[in-house]
Simulated assay, not measured.
Amino acid sequence: MAAALVLTAIFGPVGLCYLSVTTGLIATALATVILVISNAGAAPLLVLWPLSMVWAVIGTNSLRRAVVGGRRHLEGA
């Protein structure tokens, strides 16, 4: 979880590629579109950057639960 948080803190939405390349690319494309359409300068980054950090933490926890749950399932077989 710490690695995902640090990567998104440094790289923003691109740091989500640590969790999933598809998710990272979608988040980066979405952030780019919002920045271009909003024409508000860097102000949207004040929302998008922390949002991507929260998304990274939630995604990491979900992946960790899936992996741990998968291991328990395999151990029970």
Score class of each variant (00 low, 15 high):
residue 1 M to C: 07
residue 1 M to R: 02
residue 4 A to L: 10
residue 4 A to D: 06
residue 5 L to M: 09
residue 8 T to A: 11
residue 8 T to Q: 06
residue 9 A to D: 03
residue 10 I to L: 14
residue 10 I to G: 05
residue 11 F to D: 11
residue 11 F to P: 08
residue 12 G to V: 13
residue 13 P to G: 08
residue 15 G to T: 06
residue 16 L to K: 12
residue 16 L to P: 01
residue 18 Y to L: 08
residue 18 Y to I: 08
residue 18 Y to T: 08
residue 20 S to I: 05
residue 21 V to G: 08
residue 21 V to D: 11
residue 21 V to K: 15
residue 22 T to C: 09
residue 23 T to Q: 08
residue 23 T to C: 03
residue 24 G to R: 12
residue 25 L to C: 15
residue 26 I to E: 01
residue 27 A to E: 04
residue 29 A to P: 15
residue 29 A to T: 15
residue 29 A to Y: 15
residue 31 A to Y: 07
residue 32 T to R: 14
residue 32 T to L: 13
residue 32 T to N: 14
residue 32 T to E: 15
residue 33 V to C: 12
residue 33 V to D: 07
residue 34 I to H: 05
residue 34 I to S: 03
residue 35 L to D: 03
residue 35 L to Y: 02
residue 35 L to T: 09
residue 35 L to G: 11
residue 35 L to M: 12
residue 38 S to R: 06
residue 38 S to Q: 04
residue 39 N to T: 13
residue 40 A to C: 08
residue 42 A to L: 13
residue 42 A to G: 07
residue 42 A to F: 12
residue 42 A to P: 05
residue 48 L to I: 11
residue 51 L to W: 13
residue 51 L to V: 09
residue 52 S to H: 10
residue 52 S to V: 11
residue 56 A to F: 03
residue 58 I to R: 15
residue 59 G to F: 00
residue 62 S to D: 12
residue 67 V to F: 01
residue 67 V to A: 01
residue 68 V to R: 01
residue 68 V to C: 02
residue 70 G to W: 00
residue 71 R to Y: 06
residue 72 R to E: 07
residue 72 R to I: 03
residue 73 H to M: 14
residue 74 L to Y: 04
residue 74 L to D: 05
residue 74 L to V: 09
residue 75 E to S: 14
